[in-house]
Nucleic acid binder design. Sequence first.
DNA 1: AAGCTGCTGACAGGCTCCAT
DNA 2: ATGGAGCCTGTCAGCAGCTT
Length: 489
Amino acid sequence: MGNGGSGSGLSKTSLLKGIQCSKALYLTKNPPDFEIPSAPDLEAKFETGKEVGFLAQQLFLGGTEVPSSGLTVKEQISRTRELIDAGAKVIYEASFAFDGIFIKADILVRTGATWEIHEVKMSTKVKDPNYDDAAIQYYVIANSGLTVSKVFLVHINNQYVRQGEIDVHQLFVSEDITDQAFARQKGIQAIIAELRKALQGDEPSIDIGPYCSTPYECEFIPYCWQHIPEDSIFSLKGRGINKFDYYNQGIVRLEDLPLDKLNAAQKFQAIATISKKDSIKLSAVKGFLVSLWYPLCHLDFETFDTPIPPFDGTRPYQKIPFQYSLHIQQTEGAEPVHYEYLANPGEDPRRELAEKLLSEIPKEACLLTYNQVFEKGVLKTLAEFFPDLAAAINGRIDNIRDLMTPFKKRDIYRWQMRGSYSIKEVLPALVPELSYDGLSVSDGMMAMRVYHEMCKTEDTAKVAKLRQGLLEYCRLDTLAMVKILNKLL
DNA sequence: AAGCTGCTGACAGGCTCCAT
DNA sequence: ATGGAGCCTGTCAGCAGCTT
């Protein structure tokens, strides 16, 4: 799936990063004496990418893949050339090098005397950097002596609903991006020359800028941003002032910002941070509390989503709940009773989960969630898929209230929340004694990965351990809600 | 990375006021 | 009466924040 090569001059990935910032390109080649935190989900992403790529290959008949492992870059290129010379119609991972740039085209298709490039992506739409990607492929392949007639970007169609075997012609959408790839040819050589210059000299003296996180988050942020203090102008949430305008004027600390230039939300955050003062609007918080009633059920789902719909009736990237935690309080301040569910790996958990949930949440109970749109969305999808349960599920949806509301409206604010109303910031600010430290699963993304791992492993002892980690984590999530609510009472 | 929601900034259109 | 400047309001796309 369009991963860069390695070993011969510039790789595609580093070239793209270089377009974002030539300093990052330099650092990729000359890593600083600095530990770069690795993205934990990279492996899972790579695996899913391989699956998507494999499915996309089924859009074409036959074809031969040029393997990446076991062959040197040179061998991959000559293997590709052999296939072309032998009259191959379709080549997967077709490899080329030109001008010191090595690329692998996901799918190369012969159409008479010309060739089509099909780049496969896991996303659901074409994004701007994809055009650069395609442009480089075009540049290298065309300069390797092939006539390229068309460039396509193949991406996921998120409207596809699986019924039985995956229908690859419905799962994927192909967009013709020939014009965009072609239009970018003019500038490519200049960009390459500039990047090559960056690689040859000393570390380029490029200051931090918006390109550090757009379009991708740069892995060298911890290195380049060392001089930025924690409570800097960059800690301000939301839109408002152009932070880099102030940075370029030498203003970094919140204290040095002209507060009258900030919008209301940012001004609020800046003043709270500088003065280390909390605030509470008692009547508004009371108003929220009287909108709740008992029994009160604190609910939290864990879900997974994949580009390839795993079960009948599911769409790409549909959130599929595999776990929930439920703390039920019969009266205000009462000790909560805990209920939970965690699916058996590999099975479609939706029916069992929905039935168990309905049996545990009393019809008339108030349901509390943190960020209600998420839980409501999951429940709505369940109701649509199980018409016989729809009335019961929709009844529960109507009873949902959102614990995030008073924090989102800033009715209660602690300066430690750093302008955020996410439970990750609210919990340590309000209930510092309850922490996720020491848990093997510490957030929703990790829960997703652990569940994925649990589905793959055969080792029953390992499964039991992963299971325990998931249960502990999810239980803590709703316990955190109980504790936060207690602080408001 | 997706999807939902609410906010924000940009922009168009309409209104008032004032100068000519 | 006409036309331009300035201001207000409504609409809308895009962004940012939240969850997993």
